[in-house]
Design a protein around this nucleic acid. Structure first.
Length: 595
RNA sequence: GCCCACGUAGCUCAGGAGGUAGAGCACCUCCUUGGUAAGGAGGAGGUCAUCGGUUCAAGUCCGAUCGUGGGCUCCA
């Protein structure tokens, strides 16, 4: 029911787990060295925790005064000194009382708190290098000299133990690698990711904007972004119709009564925008589409013969996100889900879930993604609705779906929502970052709450099985992912402008207009640049704007009635007739096909 | 929402320790008609985010607000 619409999820996958462990150790040791450096530069700092993370490490400090950016080079310099001394990391086993005394004497109150949290049966260890001691499970590298390549990256605030009720600590992020070459590669990767930032490309390519006057998290789609969205949605619609879905449309607001029935006003209110009063009735802006689709269902009696129903909608929803969480297209307050609900009989569950899973993967593949990671979330330990039998059954089917697929998947035991188990699909982009997009969720709750029924062969009323699913997740977020994945160089079928016809001089204007007319007639998106500018100037502009194909027209082309193509990032190719070029385009611009 | 940083022309950015704004690109005009990533000249364009304060004088100092960014947090 709740689609992970705009969650940013970045994880760099390392292939070899041994390598990971070595790196983790190295990074954790680097964190210790950093804490040592911070303590010697800022004796008033209290140390807290400093783990290794996916692409580096951090250490949190309680500081009377926050760090500034200028502090980072100073800390790095101090760290270099500690590393140069090649101090051995010593592991010291201590009793609780010894540990307590040590950290108490040092005034490290956070360490005392951590010490108390260590289970009774666990050995307490301290790691020491030079004069720096830290309560730590380890392991560590042999000595500080093993740290060959590190860099401090940023400063951030972070709550003690991640709880906003606690004190805000000062966090320093850094990273470390086996050697300088690997570090350099990682820094280059960060730079590449920054270059692809969809917010930057969105502005440069004039795709979308988010406007202060309108409000944070509310997206304006410019003509070029709008064209891409239109192409994407047309593709999406046609594929859904082909795959047995019917398209529905529902309103943006509904009376509070609906949200009471659905339960959203109970458990989702803090994410919903305040309502408005109309004719004495309270209306709320929708954060989800499901209650509407259920109302469609409930307008009629249904027979077991009629299933399944597959109702899809590009439904725009609004959810309150805290201001600090907003981020470009990835985290917004208004977005369009590529939503659908499937209603079915119990005996159809297996077929439908297989089918929708396959459709999800194929949809993502159509946009050029090849690698996926799936996650199965099973029954929560605490409260849940639905019988154990139906949970077991549905979970088994989902497991089967994943096994049959054969790809990489993890199981989040107990991670399912209270209303049903689910499969989430994350894609990996060209920078190997993971983005969770698709979600396929069973729902044993809403059919009950809305008293959905169908008539069985025995003439009894039976609850249908309900599945929520989104393939792309949110159109806004998926668009952001596409921008970054392609670095703005959209494939021909999605490019807002496919062909730019560029003239050498104004003597070719007539031919340029004819070529554009021909291209448009054939259904391509083409424009002519007939400005009084040098050829190289116009070529550059077409390249900078990432138009996939530029056709150069000079005297030669006019004479032979040809065009000279040049593709994005490539060099000039040989001249071809317009007929030949149209043939080439029909191959290059074909929409993907989903089986 | 919280911590820190930032907010000067459409964009990217300059503006030494207060004296009433500048560059490049983009835009407009003119010259140039030039074969594969920027030809030349000129012009227009800014209540320096907003509001308030200090001062004879505030992009410049102080405060608040709004917004953006990096994180944290939340995510039925």
């Amino acid at each position: 029911m709740h689609f992970p619409d705009s969650r940013k999820r970045i994880r760099v996958i390392m292939e070899n787990s041994n390598e990971i462990n070595k790196l983790e150790t190295l990074r954790h040791s680097t964190a210790h060295v950093m804490a040592d450096a911070v303590k010697s530069l800022f004796p008033e700092a209290k140390i807290t925790i400093g783990p290794s993370i996916e692409a580096g490490f951090y250490y949190d400090f309680d500081m009377p005064k926050p760090f500034s950016d200028e502090d980072l080079p100073r800390i790095e310099a101090k760290m270099d000194e500690i590393i140069a001394q090649n101090l051995p990391f010593e592991r010291i086993e201590v009793t609780r009382n010894e540990a307590r005394k040590i950290f108490d004497d040092m005034g490290e109150t956070y360490k005392l708190e951590l010490l108390d949290a260590i289970p009774e049966n666990e050995t307490v260890t301290i790691y020491k290098h030079g004069n720096f001691m830290d309560l730590c499970r380890g392991p560590h590298v042999e000595s500080t000299g093993r740290i060959k390549a590190f860099k401090l990256l940023s400063i951030a605030g972070a709550y003690w133990r991640g709880d906003e009720k606690n004190k805000m600590l000062q966090r320093i992020y850094g990273t470390a690698f086996e050697d300088r070459k690997a570090l350099k590669a990682h820094l280059a990767w960060l730079e590449e990711a920054a270059k692809r930032d969809h917010r930057k490309l969105g502005r440069e390519l004039d795709l979308f904007s988010i406007n202060e006057t309108i409000g944070g998290g509310l997206v304006l789609w410019h003509p070029k972004g709008g064209k891409i969205r239109q192409l994407l949605e047309d593709f999406w619609r046609s594929q859904h119709e082909k795959h047995g879905y019917d398209i529905v449309f529902t309103p943006h607001i509904a009376r509070d009564e609906l949200w009471h029935q659905s339960g959203h006003l109970g458990f989702y209110k803090e994410s919903m925008f305040d309502g408005m009063e109309v004719d004495g009735q309270q209306y709320l802006v929708k954060p989800m589409n499901c209650p509407f689709h259920i109302q469609i269902y409930k307008t009629n009696m249904h027979s077991y013969r009629d299933f399944p129903y597959r109702w899809a909608e590009l439904g725009t929803v609004y959810r309150y996100e805290r201001s600090g969480a907003l981020h470009g297209l990835f985290r917004v307050r208004g977005f369009t889900q590529d939503d659908a609900h499937i209603y079915m009989r119990h005996d159809q569950m297996k077929y439908e879930l297989h089918r929708v899973f396959k459709f999800s993967l194929n949809m993502l593949k159509a946009f050029g993604f090849e690698n996926f990671v799936c996650r199965l979330s099973t029954k929560p330990a605490g409260k849940y609705v639905g019988t154990d039998e139906i949970w077991a059954n549905a979970t088994e089917v989902l497991r089967e779906v994943l096994t049959e697929w054969g790809g990489e998947y993890e199981v989040d035991e107990g991670g399912g929502a209270f209303y049903g188990p689910k499969i989430d699909i994350a894609l990996k982009d060209s920078l190997n970052r993971e983005w969770q997009c698709s979600t396929i969720q069973l729902d044993f709750n809403l059919p009950d709450r809305f008293d959905m029924t169908y008539i069985s062969p025995e003439s009894t009323k039976v609850r249908p099985i309900m599945v929520h699913r989104a393939l792309l997740g949110s159109i806004e977020r998926f668009f952001g992912i596409l921008i970054e994945h392609f670095a703005g160089k959209f494939p021909m079928w999605l490019a807002p402008e496919q062909v730019r016809v560029v003239t050498v001089t104004n003597d070719q204007d007539a031919w340029a207009e004819e070529v554009v007319t021909e291209l448009k007639k054939a259904g391509y998106r083409a424009t002519a640049d007939m400005r009084n500018e040098k050829l190289s100037y116009k070529i550059r502009e077409a390249q900078v704007q990432k138009v996939p194909c530029t056709l150069v027209l000079g005297a030669k082309e006019v004479e032979n009635r040809t065009v000279t193509p040049r593709y994005l990032g490539g060099n000039s190719e040989s001249s071809v007739s317009i007929e030949d070029f149209l043939n080439i385009m029909s191959l290059k611009a074909a929409s993907p096909v989903i089986e």
